[in-house]
Design a protein around this nucleic acid. Structure first.
Lengths: 201, 201
DNA sequence: ACCGAATTAGGACGATCGACCTAATCTCGG
DNA sequence: CCGAGATTAGGTCGATCGTCCTAATTCGGT
């Protein structure tokens, strides 16, 4: 129990610091101080920095999978579930403005460091990609197109996050979020009837 | 002369290393080795790491301003000039896939480091934003809308760069680039006649 | 040819990095 | 209640960080 608690505290603190300061710029000392433990204790739980990174990525994946499961329950239709995804930009607007997207900035940093965990971090995009594609497919899209629409939406959310982080232009973000919502509606409009009848059947 | 040469070599090497490895992860030693000079010589030209960063940002801004001036000359119409911007994604596709967008990744990193040069780095976006807005305005768009269209295009290019860097999915990139080109055409279509007559007048 | 300034080389500094180790403390089943 | 294993604290290691310094070398003007 104590093991789990301390370990989870470390991962949570590392997750937060990696997000706010970046992985490379965050040291053992930073994390240990944030948790309030010694570096030796830290080393007992994670032998290398890469192990912490792996645990943090695992937690981020799990957190997002859990979030999408909540959307799956709360959203009555695929379209509403997709809009839940877009809502992240609104809900986390302030953090994104300060630190960027937790997914995009991590993968970018690991790409530059040419870090071994690159592939694992890209799984973060993968879970969003496949979940969104499943929603588009559930709305009646053919599978290949569903994946393309998922990627398009991911692309727009990444672009908005990057530019909001750089420009701090909240009006821009609000405008683009609205355009994104309209785009979802337009993308699903031609197949709306088919999707509804399929759902009713 | 010699001063300029060495200095320029340092800035060029730093620019390259900051792009490929990130600012924080690149040390004096890295840059000095790349140029083939001693750290002491290095320190003669730049007293602090922040000074190098400022010089690199200045160079990146100048490079991009020069690039846009070339587009201005080569592109007969505003639409063609805007398409030149989109072409960066194709021309630099391989580098973007490896290291991301030089503009977006730098601003993201500096945001996380909460670095003093944050604002300067954001000027990189600013030059693209104002140049693109000028093109849309020249094509007949009202000024406010021209800026919004510029930001929308910047957003899409950033999103594509981030996702291409993460996923290495070149088909996705090619598809989105084509969609971007179509979007430009559609955005300018309603005002095409007005823009042409204005140009002829 | 010569001198002052610009340039270059390379060593040294305190701090901090990731990593490792030992020893003290805590926890809990037998 | 005690001893083994889990947990924690804190010191230490070599490497590297950004920065600073001095001394050697090169260069340009007179």
């Amino acid at each position: 129990m104590s093991r789990n608690t301390t370990r989870q505290e470390i991962v949570a603190a590392a997750d937060d610091l990696f997000y706010r300061q970046g992985f490379d710029h965050t040291s053992y000392a930073h994390i240990a101080d944030a948790v309030g433990i010694s570096r030796g204790n830290f080393y007992h739980h994670f032998k290398t920095k890469d192990e912490i990174l792996a645990a943090v990525i695992e937690k981020r994946v799990a957190d997002r999978v859990a979030m999408m499961e909540r959307w799956e329950i709360a959203g009555a239709t695929p379209e509403k579930r997709i809009l839940s995804f877009i809502d992240i930009l609104t809900v986390n607007g302030d953090k994104i403005m300060q630190y960027g997207c937790p997914v995009g900035t991590l993968t970018s940093e690991l790409a530059k460091l040419n870090h071994a965990a690159r592939g694992e971090a890209n799984r973060l995009f993968g879970v969003f990609r496949s979940w969104l594609a499943r929603q588009f497919a559930a709305a009646g899209c053919e599978e290949t197109q569903a994946d393309q629409l998922a990627m398009h939406l991911l692309m727009r959310s990444q672009g908005v996050a990057t530019l909001l982080n750089a420009s701090h232009d909240t009006q821009f973000a609000a405008r683009e979020i609205e355009l994104m919502r309209e785009w979802v509606g337009a993308a699903l409009a031609p197949i709306g009837d088919r999707a509804r009848s399929g759902k009713a059947a």
